[in-house]
Every structure is written in structure tokens, then in C-alpha cells.
Design a protein around this nucleic acid. Structure first.
Length: 544
RNA sequence: GCCCCGGUAGCUCAGUUGGAUAGAGCGCCGGCCUUCUAAGCCGGAUGUCGCAGGUUCGAGUCCUGCCCGGGGCGCCA
């Protein structure tokens, strides 16, 4: 039952192992106990509910079981632990020794930017598809949230040890492209765009550029193709500014050209899952958890968007991914069941397909919903937001909340370069540490093997180290739950603990032994913050 | 009608897979720079965790039913 020790888990792993072993001695088959950080300092550095889990199986009161566990845990941990108390309903509270904290800090510092990486229990090959905005307009702030989430999730999964690829699916075929071409044609002619067409001012600009380069008189279909090229140029530039780089761009048109849609439908037909009804061709998605069957080919002979997407996802599966993650807007949630049904129809496990549903993002200024652009038919562009508040603030604010919650971005707050702006809080901690190392270098760091003075571990220092030790758990949690916002919460906690440490603990010139020990704590903190910010796609400046 | 998401401090939101006296930021009040960055720190006030039941040693967290807000239920994409 003991998992192989994972070097990535850090110093706390040994605590969990000791508890599990002591528990196994007492009674077999007790479920894995939690190792938590208790809510209050008096409760020690770590606590476990092991005794409360074992009590019903053993048939004794939790506090009695807890008392029996103490010896076994103490014996295994030696002088790492100073004292173990039984508390409350049966918690075991572990008070770690000063030496244990010093060793832990040195270990974390030694791992540098690697600390917390490789925590995935079962590394797998993952494809994250996100943004995938139609190339018929510039990216919006909604895409900005998708991109921040998708890219950060990819970074986190990669750091955790998975083999991750980012992909953008390009809807470069179909009725929307036709409509886009018709809209451009109308603007060139000085007419209103057709019903339901693209009304944004940028369409006229696209038309002008095409006329300037290729002359007038192009067919709408050609205008659509050239328009997509130009829009794509802009989209790539915006992604670049946002620090997002896709490994692959999948093209719907290419799938059509390769006959992928027909092949996918033929495959499903071979599996006996396709039938004809009222002139259309249907897929039995209802056999795999969907509400009802879905149309693959319309009565007029044209394949549906769903059919093309099935072909696309079949292609993803054939490329050997264990896990497909799609990042979609809330308006697409009704689409999830049918797509998963198709995945299962191809013989892949349902769990191999996941969708992260993104809630909306509003821009707020002065307590009111902000308009980034007042032009008719236009919308809040990501470029305008990047211009306004910068990449760091954009990405950080997008990831401060769970993706399942709508967010309001306060532009006034995001713009200010003051302490009120949460994006600078963690960056400032990082810059402060870098500055501290510069000072240490100027003054000449203390050298030698002086021992660390006893009773030199201040409460703030102890709290900071304990916070750093959460790193592996925080990474695996963010990765497993697909929640980059957990990283954003955690990095602010690390920064807050560092600022308190900085207040209470002199580093440079602290004295023989102590200065080096505290520089190790600072180095560990600096690296952890830099890693976390990088996972969010935010820079870690060395000075501010 | 059915499905998804949310409802936690004045505001915006966290809440580590069911744990101890529910937290943070903003806003409000008051303190702290002759030593490593004050973009910082410290102290102070505020809660029927939407409502009602249930599960158990224990529920903001899990189950059921309601209420409110947002989104979705096409041979559109």
C-alpha cells in the first residue's frame, strides 16, 4: 500500500509516510490519512486525522487511538519532531524541530526552480485545445480569459510532469467564412453587410487592405480566404503579445481536404452507430449518454459542424493522446455530452475527454460596465486590454478567480502601479529578494561552516518555510483539478509570508551561520515565486 | 420543462477533496521607514456560508427539495 517515495514531494512526504506506517502497525486497512497544516499556530506545524479515521475500525475512542499512534510516529521521525499532541476530537498535532525546518529550507533551496516539478503520479500525453476563435475577427477579452487559462493549465500540467501540447483549431471553412467573405464584399462596395453578417469596423479595413494588395473585383469566396489570412496575422500577433505559443494549428479545411469527415462517418457507420432519418444522417449519441441523437449530414447533403468536429477529435485520438482537454465558453456546455459520446463511440474511455467551461469576463470601471470600444458592432478587444493594463495584469487578473466564476476586472485597479494592485504584490516580493541578494553580494556574503545558532527560527521564518513546503501539493492540486487560479492564490500567500519574514528577520549581517541559513530561505522563496509566476505566464522582475 | 455555473464580511472572491474559533484583497479607522526596496508591515470592525430537511463523532464542503441570478437546450457554428 505504500507508494514509492516520490522525490518531488519534498520533506513533508516523510511525515505522511511515518504516519501511514505507524497506522499500519496499529491496524491494517485504514484509509490514507490527511496531512494538513492546522489553522492555528498552537496546533503545531502539521496535523493528521489518522486516529479519527482508524477509531471506528478499531472500536476505540479517537483520542485513545491517537495516543497510541504517537510512539510509532515519534520513533520513525526521530529528532525531526519535537512533540506530538492529541487535540480536539482526536487530531494529532506535530510540532517539528528547528533542525527539521532548517534542513527542509536547504533542501528546497537546493532544488531551485525544479522544486515542485514532476509530481504527476501517472504522467500522460495531454492535448489542450483552447481559444480556437473563428478567424473572422480580432481576439476579444473573452478569448483573453481562455488563453490565460488554457496556456497556464498547459504550463502547470507540463511542470507536473505531463507531456503537453497546445493546439488551436481553426474554423477556416464553412458558412461563417462564406458570411465573412460576403461581409467584406459588401463593405468594399459601400453597402450594408448581409443579415447576420460581420458588422465590426475592422471588416471595412480588411476590405481596403485586400483591394490595395489585390485590386478590386474579387469573388466573396476569395475575399473570405484572404480576409481569414489577414485576421489570422492579427490573432497570432495578439497571442504573441500574450506570451502564448501553440504547438499546432489544426485546420478544418485541411480535414475536409483529406476526407477526414467522410472517413470518420464511415468508421461510425461500420460500428453500426449511424442511421438515416427524414433525409438526414444521424449518429446514435444517445447510446453514450447524450440526450438525443445528433445529425451528421443535413438533408441537403452538407455535413454539420458536429461532423467536422467528430473528425477532428478522431484525429486527436489517433495522434495518441491519453487526455483531450477542451477549453470552451459557457455557451458551449450543451455540446459536451454529444462530443464525449462521439469519443466513446470511437472506443476511447469517456474520461479521456474533458471540457473546461469558462464563465464570462466583464470589464468594470468606476463601478460600471466598461466599453472598450464604442464603435457599433465592435466589442472588447484583447489588444485594447493588453495596451491598457499590460500582459502581466491581464493574465494575472484572468487567473485570480475560478474559471467557473464570472469575473469583473476593475480596470482602474489593474492600471495602477500601487500596492492596491494584487499583480505587483508577488512580483514585488521577488524583486525584494533579488535586491537583497545584490546587497549581500556587495557587502560580501559570510562564508565558512558556522553552525546555525539554536533558537534562531522566528515564527515568521517557520511560517514561510512551511508555506514553501506546500509547493508540491499546490502544483498537483492545480494540475489535477485543472485550476490555475489555485496557483494565483498560493503565490500571493507565499509573498505575504515572505513580507512578514522580511519584517521580522534580518538576513544580511544576521551573523555567522544565520545569514547563510536565511539566504537559503530567501533563495528558496525567490525560486518558488518565480516558478509560480511563470506558471501563470507572468514575469518575475529582478527589480521594480 | 430539462441541463450547466454561481449564491460565503459593505464590495470582489478564496476555502487544500468531510475537520478544530470560516479566511484574503479592496473599502473604513489607527500605528510603523537613520540598517537588506514603505509597490511593504502591524493592529481594529463586520458573517442566519441563499432557505429547509437529511447523512455522521463532525457539513461552507456530500444527498434531496425549494428560492434567486447568469448561461444553454438547432438538420447554426
Amino acid at each position: 500500500m505504500n507508494a514509492a517515495p516520490n522525490p518531488s514531494a519534498g520533506p513533508t512526504a516523510a511525515l505522511g509516510d511515518a504516519i501511514a506506517a505507524a497506522l499500519a502497525d496499529l491496524h491494517p486497512g485504514v484509509p490514507a490519512a490527511a496531512l494538513e497544516r492546522p489553522p492555528r499556530p498552537e496546533f503545531g506545524d502539521y496535523s493528521t486525522n489518522a486516529a479519527m479515521l482508524a477509531a471506528p475500525l478499531i472500536g476505540e475512542p479517537p483520542r485513545d487511538v491517537a495516543a497510541k499512534l504517537i510512539g510509532g510516529i515519534e520513533q520513525r521521525l526521530g529528532d525531526a519532531v519535537e512533540r506530538i499532541d492529541v487535540a480536539g476530537p482526536g487530531f494529532l498535532n506535530l510540532h517539528m524541530s528547528e533542525g527539521w525546518f532548517r534542513d527542509a529550507a536547504a533542501l528546497v533551496a537546493g532544488r531551485g526552480r525544479e522544486f515542485g516539478s514532476g509530481v504527476a503520479e501517472r504522467p500522460s500525453k495531454v492535448l489542450v485545445e483552447f481559444v480556437s476563435a473563428n478567424p473572422t475577427g480580432p481576439l476579444t477579452v473573452a478569448s483573453g480569459r481562455h488563453l490565460a487559462y488554457g496556456d497556464s493549465l498547459a504550463r502547470i500540467l507540463g511542470f507536473a510532469g505531463h507531456d503537453v501540447r497546445r493546439e488551436y483549431y481553426l474554423n477556416d471553412a464553412g458558412s461563417q467564412i462564406d458570411l465573412f467573405g460576403a461581409s467584406i464584399a459588401a463593405r468594399i462596395a459601400g453597402d450594408e453587410v448581409p443579415e447576420g453578417g460581420y458588422e465590426g469596423d475592422y471588416v471595412a479595413g480588411i476590405g481596403q487592405r485586400i483591394v490595395a494588395e489585390h485590386g478590386a473585383g474579387l469573388e466573396p469566396a476569395e475575399l473570405g480566404r484572404l480576409g481569414v489570412e489577414l485576421m489570422l496575422e492579427g490573432i497570432r500577433a495578439t497571442l504573441d503579445r500574450s506570451r502564448v505559443h501553440f504547438d499546432t494549428w489544426a485546420s478544418e479545411q485541411s480535414l475536409h481536404d483529406a476526407g477526414a469527415t467522410e472517413n470518420a462517418i464511415a468508421d461510425l457507420r461500420d460500428r453500426g452507430l449511424v442511421y438515416e432519418h427524414e433525409g438526414a444522417v444521424w449518429l446514435r449519441t444517445s447510446e453514450f449518454g447524450d440526450d438525443k441523437d445528433r445529425v451528421l449530414i443535413r438533408a441537403d447533403g452538407a455535413p454539420t459542424y458536429f461532423a467536422a468536429d467528430i473528425a477532428y477529435h478522431r484525429d486527436k485520438l489517433e495522434r495518441g493522446f491519453d487526455l483531450l482537454i477542451n477549453v470552451l465558453g459557457a455557451d458551449h456546455h450543451g455540446y459536451v455530452d454529444r462530443m464525449r459520446a462521439a469519443i466513446v463511440a470511437f472506443g476511447a474511455p469517456g474520461e479521456s475527454f474533458e471540457v473546461s467551461i469558462m464563465q464570462m469576463v466583464n470589464l468594470v470601471e468606476g463601478g460600471e460596465r466598461a466599453r472598450m470600444s464604442k464603435r457599433r458592432g465592435d466589442f472588447a478587444r484583447l489588444d485594447d486590454l493588453l495596451e491598457d493594463i499590460g500582459v502581466d495584469a491581464t493574465r494575472f487578473f484572468m487567473l485570480m478567480r475560478s474559471h467557473e466564476t464570472p469575473i469583473d476586472i476593475d480596470l482602474e485597479l489593474a492600471r495602477t502601479h500601487s500596492s492596491d494592485n494584487p499583480v505587483y504584490y508577488a512580483q514585488y516580493a521577488h524583486a525584494r529578494i533579488c535586491s537583497l541578494f545584490r546587497t549581500a553580494a556587495e557587502r560580501g556574503a559570510e562564508t565558512g561552516d558556522d553552525p546555525v545558532p539554536a533558537e534562531s527560527l522566528e515564527p515568521a521564518e517557520r511560517a514561510l518555510i512551511a508555506r514553501l513546503l506546500e509547493m508540491p501539493d499546490q502544483i498537483s492540486r492545480a494540475a489535477n483539478k485543472r485550476e490555475p487560479h489555485g496557483i494565483s492564490t498560493y503565490v500571493r500567500e507565499v509573498a505575504a509570508d515572505f513580507h512578514a519574514f522580511y519584517r521580522d528577520c534580518r538576513v544580511v549581517g544576521a551573523g555567522p551561520g544565520l545569514e547563510q541559513a536565511r539566504l537559503a530561505v530567501c533563495a528558496a522563496t525567490r525560486d518558488v515565486i518565480a516558478t509560480l509566476l511563470d506558471l501563470l505566464g507572468v514575469e518575475a522582475p529582478e527589480e521594480m
